[in-house]
Nucleic acid binder design. Structure first.
Length: 193
DNA sequence: CTACCGATCGCCT
DNA sequence: GGCGATCGGTAGC
């Protein structure tokens, strides 16, 4: 009934792991295309795996700006990744969506990929939603972005993060329990929260 | 200025 | 399961 509710002001001005966990199940649209968030990862300035760990630079400046803004960066020379800032160098990486709106558009952008792989992974998600560096620094509560839903109304599993070499033991990756749309299935033993 | 390498993906075997 | 593609940020000389 309140699934179309906008997120509270201040939603992003909290610890990144709490924001990352509460984003699971929230709908994320860019120009009307997207779906429910099913996988996130938290990073903060005290975290050796974070872009912000060594302090502000031109690339990560948005992470040190106000909460609730979009941080976009390029990885491996060819993929875009999108984060939502939480203030003080912290941010949440959006890793996977369950496709919900604009699926045909996403299929075209993703070159005919099957639905399960349209948004399963940060690079794929940005390709499907047409997110690139031109959106870096934009606020998340205004077009082209649209985030809405009821935070905390889902079963979430917490595991370690993917693709990093340092701080690999921190369980700051959050997935919608049982979702087939995550980038990689969580290991069997996880904390439920 | 140069060298290294990463919060990845898709295609190959 | 393994590997090549491709390039900007960062650090070090």
């Amino acid at each position: 009934m309140t699934d179309d509710a906008a997120l509270d002001p201040g939603f992003f001005a909290r610890d990144a792991p709490a924001v990352a966990r509460d984003l699971i199940g929230i709908a994320m649209l860019v120009n009307g295309v997207g779906g429910r968030i099913v996988e996130t990862e938290a990073y903060d300035a005290q975290d050796a795996a974070s872009h912000s760990f060594r302090g502000p630079t031109p690339r990560n400046a948005v992470m040190f700006g106000p909460p609730g803004h979009v941080y976009v960066y390029r990885i491996y020379g060819m993929h875009w990744c999108v984060n939502f800032t939480c203030g003080n160098g912290a941010a949440v990486l959006i890793r996977a969506l369950e496709p919900g709106s604009g699926i045909e558009t996403m299929r075209v952008r993703r070159n005919g990929a099957v639905d399960r792989l349209l948004c399963a992974g940060p690079g794929r998600l940005c390709q499907a939603l047409a997110i690139d560096s031109s959106m870096n620094g934009l606020p998340v509560d205004a077009p082209p972005f649209d985030l809405h839903g009821q935070p905390g109304d889902t079963e979430v599993t917490a595991t370690t993060r993917i693709g990093i070499r340092v701080a690999a033991d921190i369980p700051w990756r959050f997935c919608l329990a049982g979702s087939p749309f995550v980038s990689r299935r969580p290991a069997l033993a996880q904390d439920s929260c």
